[in-house]
Simulated scan of single mutants.
Amino acid sequence: MPDEQRYVLGVAYQAGPDPMIKRGADGGRDYFSPEELEKAAWRFLQNGPESGLFHADGTEGAATVVESYIYRGPDWDLGDVVVKAGDWLVGAILDEHAWQLYKSGRVTGWSPQGSARRITPRSS
């Protein structure tokens, strides 16, 4: 049997607010406009993309990012999620440990980690 590629592709961040999420775990609801999300996705690659597991220190290198892009549409219905134009997708090759976690269902998606400046959106 040939070696598994250990490749995963997922939504790193959805553009705009999700109407199904009214309030986040921190009591707020943050989101990026499609334009700002595109800038963040580009900066991610420019700054040397890193991926770890569970936001835990010392897990860097669990995934090697091989693709990072803004989806341009049309809507892509995957059953449990619909990828829309403006969403940020990341594809990566997982190391063996992360691959086993993924296959067992313990790793189910991307969760960007970083810092941002919070602003109040204005109606146009």
Score class of each variant (00 low, 15 high):
1 M>I: 12
3 D>E: 15
4 E>F: 10
5 Q>F: 12
8 V>W: 08
8 V>Y: 02
9 L>F: 11
9 L>N: 10
13 Y>E: 15
13 Y>Q: 12
13 Y>I: 03
15 A>K: 04
15 A>G: 09
18 D>V: 14
18 D>A: 12
18 D>T: 11
19 P>N: 11
20 M>Q: 12
20 M>S: 15
22 K>M: 13
25 A>N: 12
27 G>N: 05
29 R>Y: 14
30 D>E: 10
31 Y>C: 09
31 Y>P: 04
33 S>T: 15
36 E>S: 14
37 L>A: 04
39 K>R: 15
40 A>M: 06
40 A>L: 09
43 R>K: 11
45 L>H: 02
47 N>A: 14
48 G>W: 02
48 G>P: 07
50 E>G: 08
51 S>R: 05
51 S>C: 15
52 G>R: 02
53 L>C: 10
53 L>P: 06
55 H>R: 15
57 D>H: 10
58 G>V: 05
59 T>W: 05
60 E>Y: 11
60 E>G: 13
63 A>R: 03
63 A>V: 05
64 T>F: 09
69 Y>A: 11
69 Y>C: 08
69 Y>R: 15
71 Y>T: 00
74 P>S: 03
76 W>A: 10
78 L>M: 12
78 L>Q: 09
78 L>K: 08
79 G>T: 06
79 G>F: 07
80 D>M: 05
82 V>H: 01
83 V>N: 02
84 K>Y: 06
85 A>W: 00
88 W>D: 04
89 L>T: 07
89 L>C: 08
92 A>Q: 03
93 I>R: 14
94 L>M: 09
96 E>T: 06
98 A>T: 00
99 W>N: 00
101 L>D: 01
101 L>N: 04
101 L>W: 01
102 Y>H: 13
103 K>F: 00
103 K>I: 05
103 K>L: 14
104 S>L: 04
105 G>D: 00
105 G>P: 04
105 G>S: 06
106 R>E: 11
106 R>Q: 12
107 V>I: 15
107 V>K: 01
109 G>D: 05
110 W>F: 11
111 S>F: 09
113 Q>I: 07
114 G>T: 03
114 G>W: 01
116 A>N: 03
117 R>A: 15
